[in-house]
Design a protein around this nucleic acid. Structure first.
Length: 570
RNA sequence: CGGGGUGUAGCGCAGUUGGCUAGCGCGCAGCGUUUGGGACGCUGAGGUCGGAGGUUCAAAUCCUCUCACCCCGACCA
């Protein structure tokens, strides 16, 4: 491609509404353009990167046994009702009506559709396992799009679904896809961290995420440097700090005028926060519930939501607390009237002599102990894991980092397949339900994450396998006949060798060309200029090099061809 | 949905105590001089000042409503 003819241009100024690095560079290099919030067009340069990633995904999916399909974007709402996930997707679903008034949904994902298709296609255990997949658009009305391509409302996703005869088969498919995903990320030149994850709205049991470590990541990853165990903070179960053992003392009410927060209470009564009882009131599907945890810990709402098995969880508002006859800031599980469900973190069970609310204004109670003084409905881990906690696998201290979730794999089981009627006849002639797995990669997000992870102050540094072009020719002084001739010939020769080359043939100053080259981020740059042409040489520079090397023009196509193929096969 | 911010030329911005023909830089077009890390001069094109309503002799500027976008939080590939 000649830069003079390229559709799309580089921009010098940083776009005002882009403050994520990848967003800035994607826009400035002319790869993407925003249409409206969370919706982007891809220009030729950007599409080339996207397509390259897609092709790597395609290749690895095929190798793992996948077969590509293409599913509709427009879904009748009934299929979502049948699958039972309509409420949990809620507002995220884009909805519309067709001309007959029939309600439709723009597909946010395709488990229902593909499972319906499988139900119509699979009949016998002989037809299994299957791994249909697609690379196609998903539409989700996200509450808050952000960070350019990092979080959008319309995006290309790789989604693969596995169907097996039993759990054992699912385990095999899951392992295959986990390996395929590892291969994909490593072939893209992007080392991804595998972490245990919560399965979210999609449900299912086992689930893991592939994360690219990046400052701008939305997720917090808690990991163990010693045994490498890692999990999303949403999911991580950790060994909490232990408290010294004490004898339980007698209950003692104390006056605490106006003191509500854990900090205020612990300072006033001179007790450590780990000797206070934190009470948080939530509305779970519009029912008031009480969550208890040791005062120094935080509640992990994802875990809590799971324990409660509810679709919607939010903090209770002042009116809702008052309506339940409770005193905000002094709420306590002691003497609680029936009807309010109490969920208690296991940290409370192992602690002693807590300061808890007194259930009346300006009063707290010291030396509260479980189970002597109050009852709870559920005891479970609902705490947010922290840096410094112990690893549940090996006991060593946990660390944290931030990451961008670029892939997610789930063992879904049979629940959805059951609802969608995906059954087969087994060897004994008995009808059984397919066991399902689901696997996804956000392709555009991966592209953005690649920049977050690989860039300098001039622009992105694309890994060769996903770079928009492999070689960038800068022709300096393009009004010089020798340069026109030599650069033009080199451009043609490289293309003849099958090398992907972007040729900057514009009559621009060297500074402009070099800056544009850095901004586009192609791994190899060849500069053709009168100066080096004198000795039949050109300059060669990797995007990561500081300085260019002078090398002979003769034999350059072969040299580059070899270089590229060795780099790609690494 | 809660909190914060911004809408003026393709991009980045100034102008906002009402006052002349709405301005600057970049980019774009033409001409000329230049050329190794974002050159310079001259000329030029390009604007419903986010939208609607109102106040006024006069509105980018004041008032009301509204829309859009960005950032921080609750959600996810």
């Amino acid at each position: 491609m000649r830069v003079s003819q390229l559709f799309g241009r580089t921009i010098r100024e940083v776009p005002a509404d882009a403050d994520t690095i990848s967003h800035q560079y994607l826009v400035r290099s002319g790869m993407i353009n925003q249409l409206t919030s969370g919706i982007y067009s891809f220009l030729p340069l950007g599409l080339r990167v996207l397509t390259k990633i897609e092709n790597i995904i395609r290749d690895e999916s095929n190798k793992a046994g996948g077969q590509e399909v293409l599913l509709p974007v427009l879904h009748p709402v009934e299929i979502w009702q049948k699958g039972g996930r309509e409420p949990s997707f809620g507002e995220v679903l884009f909805r519309l009506k067709d001309r007959r008034g029939r309600e439709m949904v723009l597909g946010p994902t395709h488990e229902e559709i593909i499972t319906d298709l499988v139900a119509h296609t699979i009949q016998s255990y002989r037809d299994l396992p299957q791994m249909p997949y697609q690379l196609h658009t998903k539409l989700r009305d996200e509450p808050r799009p952000r960070g350019g391509l990092l979080r959008v409302r319309e995006f290309v996703m790789h989604d693969l679904y596995s169907y097996d005869v039993d759990e054992k088969g699912l385990d095999i498919s899951y392992d295959k896809m986990r390996q395929a995903y590892r291969n994909i990320f490593s072939r893209c030149g992007l080392p991804a961290l595998l972490v245990d994850a919560d399965s979210g709205a999609i449900g299912g049991k086992e689930s893991q995420e592939f994360m690219l470590v990046a400052e701008s990541g939305e997720d917090e990853i808690i990991y163990c440097q010693s045994c490498q165990y890692a999990a999303n903070v949403e999911k991580m179960v950790s060994v909490k700090s232990k408290l010294a053992s004490e004898e339980p003392l007698n209950l003692q009410p104390v006056s605490t005028p106006g003191l509500k927060s854990i900090e205020e209470i612990s300072a006033f009564l001179r007790v450590k926060p780990d000797h206070t009882l934190k009470v948080v009131l939530y509305m779970a599907d519009n029912k008031l519930v009480m969550a208890l945890i040791r005062g120094d810990l935080e509640i992990n709402e994802i875990k809590l939501k799971k324990v409660l098995k509810c679709d919607d969880l939010r903090l209770a508002g002042e009116p809702e607390v008052t309506a339940a006859g409770l005193e905000g800031g002094f709420v306590s599980p002691l003497g609680l009237k029936a009807g309010i469900q109490v969920i208690c973190d296991d940290s409370v069970v192992s602690g002693v002599n807590f300061v808890a609310g007194g259930n009346q204004k300006d009063t707290h109670i010291k030396n509260v102990n479980y189970p002597r003084d109050f009852k709870v409905d559920i005891v479970q881990d609902i705490a947010k894991a922290r840096v410094g906690d112990g690893c549940i696998k090996c006991g060593k201290t946990l660390s944290a980092t931030r990451g961008i979730e670029v892939g997610h794999i789930f063992k879904l089981g049979t629940a959805l397949a059951e609802k969608m009627g995906a059954k087969f006849i087994d060897e004994a002639g008995v009808s059984r339900t397919c066991v399902m797995g689901t696997y996804g990669i956000g392709v555009g997000r991966l592209m953005a994450a690649a920049i977050e992870q690989n860039h300098d102050e001039k622009g992105p540094i694309w890994p060769l396998p996903v770079a928009p072009f492999q070689v960038h020719i800068c022709g300096l002084f393009m009004d010089n006949p020798r340069v026109i001739e030599a650069a033009g010939k080199l451009y043609a020769d490289l293309q003849k060798e099958g090398i992907e080359v972007l040729f900057d043939d514009r009559l621009e100053s060297p500074g402009v060309k070099f800056n544009d080259a850095d901004l586009i981020g192609i791994p190899f740059r060849v500069t053709v200029s009168p100066r080096t042409l004198e000795g039949n040489n050109v300059e060669f520079k990797r995007r990561t090099d500081k300085k260019a090397a002078v090398i002979p023009l003769a034999g350059l196509p072969d040299y580059l061809k070899n270089l590229i193929s060795t780099e790609l096969s690494r």
